[in-house]
């Protein structure tokens, strides 16, 4: 059904080449081909399709830079979310060569240049357009686990005390940026989207193990649901996908253990 578009040569702005070089003189460059899964019901019907683009990249270019080059110089309709561009905002999680990554944390030089780089939207979330997915299901399960400090008793005038060890106990799970890379890498989530998913459990963990929090029992009750932690099959996809290096499977295991300790 698709027509083969003619090869076009774009005329980039005079400074495009120096984009990431910061004027550092001759920088080695190489070509990369992106094979992007696109979906635009408004213009291309209800079926997704693959489209390939070849762009020139430089040593420190990230995949996000390549996507920008496509959008800015070739096809402005290519749609993807991005913001901070250095791995702290969580906007540009996508499937890159079959693995969930932040486009701004994948350096092109680290990918095999001989094969096209496969770029797809996150799996398991409804696709809206090109690489943009509906994040609402993801945030909905996040909101369900009561992701906020619950305290009882009188509020102290100064800070609540917490030892460095107590602070360290939940440090790993405070790093979550809610990019959805973990949840959308989980096959159990792919099936029907009912599983709470790793990200929600990670954020529950962050409070369950916070010495200042009194809401652990409620959160454990929520995650004891049939769609809760017991659906984790410990396949470690989430830990592998996390751009913040959170040991997610371990966190889920700790939540399971807390539930068992509570039950017996």
């Amino acid at each position: 059904m698709s027509t083969l578009m003619e090869n076009t040569t774009s005329s980039p702005g005079p400074e495009t080449g120096a984009e990431t070089g910061g004027g550092m003189g001759e920088i080695p460059s190489f070509d990369v081909t992106l094979r992007i899964r696109r979906y635009s019901p408004e213009t291309h019907g209800d079926e997704a399709y693959w489209q390939e683009f070849t762009v020139t990249a430089y040593g420190t270019d990230r995949l996000l830079d390549a996507l920008h080059k496509v959008k800015w110089d070739v096809d402005g309709s290519l749609t993807f979310r991005r913001s901070c561009a250095h791995g702290v905002c969580g906007s540009d999680a996508m499937r890159i060569n079959g693995r969930n990554r932040l486009a701004c944390k994948v350096l092109l030089k680290d990918l095999n240049p001989d094969k096209p780089i496969l770029v797809e939207p996150l799996k398991g979330l409804p696709v809206k357009k090109d690489l943009v997915v509906d994040m609402e299901p993801f945030f909905a399960s996040y909101r369900e686990i009561m992701p906020f400090l619950i305290t009882g008793g009188n509020e102290p005038t100064r800070e609540r005390l917490q030892s460095a060890e107590q602070r360290e106990r939940f440090d790993d799970t405070t790093k979550c940026i809610l990019c959805a890379a973990c949840t959308s890498s989980c096959p159990v989530f792919w099936t029907d989207g009912q599983y709470f998913g790793p990200a929600a459990i990670v954020n529950a963990h962050r409070f369950i193990f916070d010495s200042r929090d009194d809401g652990a029992a409620q959160r454990l009750e929520i995650l004891n649901d049939k769609e809760g932690v017991w659906r984790c099959r410990t396949i470690f996809n989430c830990s592998e996908a996390c751009p913040r290096g959170i040991e997610i499977t371990k966190a889920i295991k700790e939540v399971k253990r807390a539930m068992i300790t509570r039950a017996f």
Partner: peptide, 19 residues
């Protein structure tokens, strides 16, 4: 700062447990 701590912000701590 104290408001944020009471909202749950995980500040680094001194040996006495203060911010």
């Amino acid at each position: 700062v104290l408001d944020l701590e009471k909202m749950g912000l995980p500040f680094n701590r001194t040996p006495e447990g203060k911010i």
